[in-house]
């Protein structure tokens, strides 16, 4: 049963609270922790909330974005310089949940949720992690696989803004609104002279963690960017994924349709 709720007013105080209560649950927006708490749990008796730790805010300058980990998905969606992300964020849960859920929290949700993390991997984003000493920096791509150690706090996410038109996104779902992913595809594709010069493709919904479609990327790099080329490259996506069965789709179906959604994300129908 919950005994203590701590609402630290700074990052330093939050780290101190975690050091003092090693078993505490760390909470940002609460959309994952609170259902556990409301259902009833003995797994923690102390809650440390990051709501007032000064970790929210979006800073953009010189073509780089730095986003506080406690920034809500709604705040992110409303930021005009990040309009390229608005459509992707719109596919995540409902507006009410997006008012609560945070950028940092999204890195830790179970698949097939966590579509923002898929976008961040495509953007090559880096997470700043405070661990008591100096902050360390880790690519979001590896962070979503390994998580963070006890006592560590993700404080911000940084990425270089993609050139106009280079960010691609599609999400296949059961329903048009507020539905978890069957397959999520986010990508940044940079072209030079019609050939693929830069290529990061991230997939969600097709493994225990969001992954890079590295085999597809390798096949695309240096190639002419057209429908036939993309379709041929997307066919090898099966090497990059380990899909699972859930209520939304079977592993077989996810594997079958992943190349289709990569094509749709990159070149449309």
């Amino acid at each position: 049963m919950l005994q203590t709720v701590i609402v630290p007013g700074s990052l330093a105080l939050a780290q101190e609270a975690l050091a003092r209560h090693p078993g505490a649950a760390l909470m940002a927006g609460g959309t994952v922790v609170m259902p556990v708490l409301n259902y009833g749990t003995d797994s923690f008796d102390t809650l440390v909330s990051l709501r007032k730790a000064g970790l929210s805010g979006i800073f953009i300058s010189d073509g780089k974005a730095s986003i506080g980990a406690a920034t809500s998905l709604s705040e992110l969606q409303e930021r005009s310089e990040l309009a390229f992300l608005a459509h992707a964020i719109n596919t995540i849960a409902s507006p009410t949940i997006r008012n609560m859920a945070t950028v940092g929290g999204n890195l830790f949700v179970e698949q097939p949720y966590g579509d923002l993390a898929v976008c961040l991997i495509a953007l090559g984003a880096t997470a700043a992690v405070a661990d008591g000493g100096a902050a360390r920096f880790e690519p979001v791509e590896t962070l979503v696989r390994h998580g963070v150690a006890k006592g560590e706090i993700v404080t911000k996410i940084s990425f270089t803004l993609p050139a106009p038109g280079t960010f691609k996104f599609t999400k296949a779902t059961r329903r048009a609104f507020n539905s978890a992913a069957i397959v999520t595809v986010a990508a940044v594709i940079g072209l030079e002279d019609g050939k693929v010069a830069e290529c990061r493709i991230a997939l969600g919904g097709v493994g225990r963690h969001p992954v890079r479609a590295k085999s597809v990327e390798e096949k695309l790099l240096g190639q002419t960017f057209d429908r036939a080329g993309v379709m041929a490259a997307a066919e090898v996506a099966g090497d990059d994924i380990e899909p699972f069965d859930d209520a939304y789709a079977s592993a077989w179906y996810r594997r079958r349709v992943t190349p289709v959604h990569i094509r749709r994300a990159l070149v449309g129908e």
Binding site: G30, M34, L47, S49, R51, M100
Partner: peptide, 8 residues
């Protein structure tokens, strides 16, 4: 239901 009132 997902907002601990002490945090607000």
């Amino acid at each position: 239901c997902m907002v601990p009132v002490e945090t607000i």
